[in-house]
């Protein structure tokens, strides 16, 4: 994957996750990709090596598993692929 993407069921959920993740991973705010048009418009991207930290931090946060989803993004434009990732490690 080129980078990981987290989508959320609500904008409040996205902001809450942003606060939890910013101290531990290099997350960036971005709009949800058109290819994955679910959730609110705000998503977080993270570098591939931060996947485990992201999974662990979100699992320990106030967000419930159904309130966010993780994707592995590869490529861009028409060649973009988004593979769902497990919300938890394992």
């Amino acid at each position: 994957m080129d980078y990981g993407l987290i989508t959320f069921a609500s904008t409040h959920g996205a902001i809450s996750a942003q606060k939890a993740l910013e101290p531990v991973a290099a997350v960036r705010v971005m709009p949800v990709l058109r290819e994955i048009s679910l959730g609110c418009g705000m998503a977080l991207r993270f570098p591939p090596q931060a996947l485990e930290t992201v999974q662990r931090t979100l699992a320990g946060s106030e967000l419930r598993p159904g309130e966010y989803a993780l994707y592995a993004i590869t490529g861009s434009g028409p060649a973009l692929r988004a593979e769902p990732l497990p919300a938890h490690k394992g």
Binding site: T11, A14, I15, Q18, R28, V29, M30, P31, G41, M42, S76
Partner: peptide
């Protein structure tokens, strides 16, 4: 403000793409 700050970041992210 928090939402507005993130919307600004998303705007510039989108411009770069």
């Amino acid at each position: 403000r928090e939402l507005g700050t993130n919307l600004m970041r998303m705007f510039f992210y989108t411009l770069t793409q």
